[in-house]
Amino acid sequence: MGGQEGPRYGRIVAELRQRIETGQLAPGDRVPSTREITRQWGVAMATATRVLTELRHEGLVRAVPGVGTVVAERAVAPAGAAVVAPAGAEAERPVRAARVAPVVAVRAAEAGPGPGGLALGRIVGAAVAVADAEGLAAVSMRRVASELGVATMSLYRHVADKDDLLTRMMDTVIAARPLPDEPPAEWREAVGLAARQLWGLFRRHPWLAPALSMTRPQVIVSALPYSEWTLAVLHAHGLDLQTAFTAHLMLLNYARGIAVNLESEREAEAHSGLDSEAWMDTQEPALLTTLSSGRFPALSRLASAGYDLDLDALFEFGLHRLLDGLAPLLDA
Rank of each mutant, 00 (worst) to 15 (best):
V95Y: 05
F317L: 14
V51T: 11
E316I: 06
E182S: 13
R50Q: 14
L314V: 14
L16M: 10
D132I: 03
V84S: 09
D310G: 00
P27S: 04
W41K: 06
T49D: 12
L60F: 02
T246N: 12
G318R: 03
V159P: 01
A160I: 12
T172A: 08
S33E: 01
D181A: 15
Q197Y: 03
G6L: 14
R204N: 13
D331A: 14
G28N: 04
H57I: 07
G149N: 03
G88Q: 03
V128A: 00
L302M: 14
P65V: 00
G23P: 04
L234F: 02
A327G: 09
H248D: 09
P178M: 05
I220F: 04
A278Y: 00
Y9P: 00
V70E: 08
A79T: 10
L224T: 15
V31N: 04
A126V: 01
E265V: 00
L329N: 05
V128I: 14
E265I: 00
L319P: 06
P32L: 03
A109N: 09
Y156C: 05
Q40H: 11
D163G: 09
V130A: 04
E267C: 04
G42V: 05
R203G: 09
R142T: 12
G318S: 06
A77V: 12
T38W: 02
A87Q: 13
V173N: 00
G116T: 03
I20D: 00
T38K: 00
R96V: 11
D312C: 05
T49E: 14
G6M: 13
P94S: 04
D240W: 02
T167L: 13
Y254E: 10
E54T: 12
D310E: 07
T230P: 01
R30L: 12
A82M: 03
A133Y: 07
V106G: 08
T167W: 06
L60V: 05
A278I: 07
M169K: 04
W41Q: 08
H158V: 11
H158Q: 14
L251T: 01
G66Q: 08
G257M: 06
M141H: 06
A127P: 01
R157E: 10
D171R: 01
Y9G: 06
G80L: 07
L120A: 12
L291V: 08
R19L: 10
L52Q: 14
R266F: 01
E263L: 05
